[in-house]
Amino acid sequence: MRKPREFIRTRRRFIADAALGTAGLGLVPAAAWSCAPPQGSQASGTGLIYDSRYLDHVLIRPDGGRPPEIPERLVRIREELVARGLDEATVPLAPAAEAMPYVTAHHTPEHVAAIRELDVTGPVAELAVSGALTGVDAVATGQVKNAFCAIRPPGHHANNTGAEEGFCYYSNAAVAAKYAQQAHGFERVLVIDWDYHHGNATQNAFYDDPSVLFFSAHDWAAYPRTGDPGLTGEGEGSGLNINVHLDCGATDADMLGRWDDTLSPAVAAFNPDFVIVSAGFDSRQDDLLGCFALTDDAFRRMTRMAMDYADACCEGRVVSLLEGGYNLDGTALATAAHIETLLEE
């Protein structure tokens, strides 16, 4: 086991812009981190993982209806990135990692067999995992410092039912976390989930695992109604599963405050080697399936804090995976703010 580093926790104050439109937001403290200087050269740049085949998956209900997890989500994100020049500022990466050995190691044979029977969706779901693993590869090998995976379908609700759950088929973040450990030798992985919905499949994957710290801030009353704050892990993983409930209408200050008072101390104690973000933008204001009031500034700040953790603990290693987000314009704007922050050195 690697020796724990000593942390010095300092305070960084963020001044709320009046344009946020959140009454009483005021000053929201966040955590900056300092530890022993990292050894060796530092990677730079932000990878952007994408493949046009992600657009091929279309979820259609038995009644013929289409839920809001649609290909246009990625189309609109790509448009916004191009408009801001972020497509040129990032390092383009195509999904190349072989996903199925790690999918089958995580999911049951019955689940995998059922998903693979889906003509178009099965291969695209596998490609989504490949995109996540490619992001891990790029960051782990120093090709880039951090990465955003513009992948679909999402994954943090995918257990082993043999069917789609909450638009998810394979547990992208959980498989990526295990991959970081198994393929690259990282011992401790932090998974941060800021999606409006609880990342129940990620929780289930690591509930008794002392090598993964899982933090999910969500509306407990929303689908899948599994994010009980009283569930904190069991056995050797006790205390390493952190569920934070936020009420409908939660503001930037509500979310960031829980990062500061709950997540930051846990990260300092856990001392991760690698950081994975389940980046669900349905926690943004005006989402079709969420009722939080988070602004794009909240996503900038959360991204910056995740980067601070990674800079202090693990040489900046952050891989972010697209999860939810169903207001097309809102998701695109929040994603762009997220990537702009990842690009900051």
Rank of each mutant, 00 (worst) to 15 (best):
M1V: 07
R9N: 05
R9V: 09
F14E: 13
G21Q: 03
T22D: 14
A31N: 03
A31P: 02
A31S: 15
A32W: 01
S34C: 11
C35I: 00
P37Y: 02
P38I: 02
P38W: 04
S44M: 06
Y50I: 05
D51Y: 02
S52V: 09
R53L: 07
H57Q: 11
L59C: 10
L59F: 01
R66Y: 09
P71N: 09
R73V: 06
R73K: 14
R73S: 09
G85Y: 05
L86I: 08
T90S: 14
M100P: 05
H106V: 06
P109K: 12
P109D: 15
V112G: 05
L118Y: 01
T121L: 12
A125H: 10
V129N: 04
S130A: 15
D137P: 09
A138K: 10
N146V: 04
I151A: 04
P154I: 08
H157K: 02
H157F: 07
A158W: 04
N159M: 13
T161W: 00
F167E: 05
A173Y: 00
A174V: 08
K178S: 09
Y179V: 03
A183D: 02
F186N: 03
R188E: 01
Y196F: 15
A201T: 02
T202S: 03
N204W: 01
A205V: 02
D208R: 04
T226F: 04
T226V: 02
G230M: 09
E236W: 00
I242P: 14
V244A: 07
H245N: 14
H245Q: 10
D254I: 04
L256C: 13
S264I: 01
F270Q: 03
P272A: 10
D273A: 08
S278A: 14
A279L: 09
A279Q: 12
G280L: 11
R284W: 02
G290W: 10
F299V: 10
R304W: 13
Y309M: 14
C313E: 02
C314K: 07
L321F: 11
E323Q: 11
N327Y: 00
T335C: 15
A336E: 10
L343R: 11
